[in-house]
């Protein structure tokens, strides 16, 4: 992993269990600031749980997580979550219009969203401005995913966690989102951590990668490690022999 760039997120011997299952096992490693790091691995590797730990929705039983060199426990949870945005695979919507969903992060702070800003955000994720007054429940899976990303961007987070956000999108929309991720990263210097099952995305878009399996980090480094992984299980995964 990059040793010259400051870490935006650092895991130090982190263990997390739930319902008597050891989900994350002694996780240690860094996510460099201002870079795109992909998180790849088979289902059930603990990737989404790791995200919830970064965003403070869960706390580890042991070890520490540092966000910008400060222990996650020293952050006010609300401040932490506004700075570490998360767009989940489920793309959950609240009842109401696209505008109400987009406004949610600000409504939670008793503020309203500027109409032009709302349209700009929709445009950035590839949705038309006239979507604003549609009912969010009427959107397709892909449109909801895009709206979910736009909603996360409202807080202008310094770190953005994206959980399989392109898995339900068609090829064209996937490309739009890939471009958006690169644009946000370049324009705002946002640190991006992106869970993806698409190794091509990891290689093309990601600067760095973490390969996780069964709650452990197996290999980390520049994305190119996916071309010739050292670990035998990672080799199998890259060849598509592990699901």
């Amino acid at each position: 992993m990059d040793t010259t760039t400051k870490p935006a997120v650092e895991f130090r011997n982190v263990n997390y269990s739930a319902d008597e299952l050891h989900i994350l096992k002694n996780i240690t490693g860094t996510f460099p600031e201002g870079k795109i790091t992909t998180l790849v691995g088979p289902s059930g590797a603990g990737k989404s749980t790791l995200f919830k730990l970064c965003n403070g929705l869960r706390s580890p039983q042991s070890g520490d997580i540092l966000i910008k060199n400060k222990s996650i426990n020293d952050y006010d949870p609300v401040e932490l979550r506004r700075n570490v945005g998360i767009a989940l695979q489920s793309a959950t919507m609240i009842k109401g219009s696209v505008l109400e969903n987009l406004e949610l992060p600000l409504a939670l702070q008793s503020k309203s969203i500027d109409h032009d800003f709302a349209e700009e955000l929709l445009h950035d994720v590839g949705l038309q401005g006239d979507f604003l007054h549609r009912n969010a429940k009427d959107l397709s899976g892909g449109q909801r995913q895009k709206l979910s990303i736009a909603r996360t961007l409202v807080n202008r987070p310094k770190i953005l966690l994206l959980d399989e956000i392109t898995s339900s999108l068609d090829r064209v929309s996937q490309h739009d989102i890939e471009e958006l991720i690169e644009k946000i990263n370049e324009k705002y210097g946002t640190t991006m951590i992106w869970i993806t099952h698409n190794l091509k995305q990891a290689l093309d878009i990601g600067h760095y990668t973490w390969v996780m399996m069964n709650g452990e980090v197996i290999e980390t480094g520049e994305s190119s490690i996916l071309h010739s992984p050292k670990n035998e299980r990672v080799q199998q995964f890259v060849k598509g022999e592990l699901e």
Partner: peptide, 12 residues
């Protein structure tokens, strides 16, 4: 999911 969404966006 809705509860966790609001928490994740910085809601109380």
């Amino acid at each position: 999911d809705e509860t966790e969404l609001i928490l994740s966006l910085g809601g109380t």
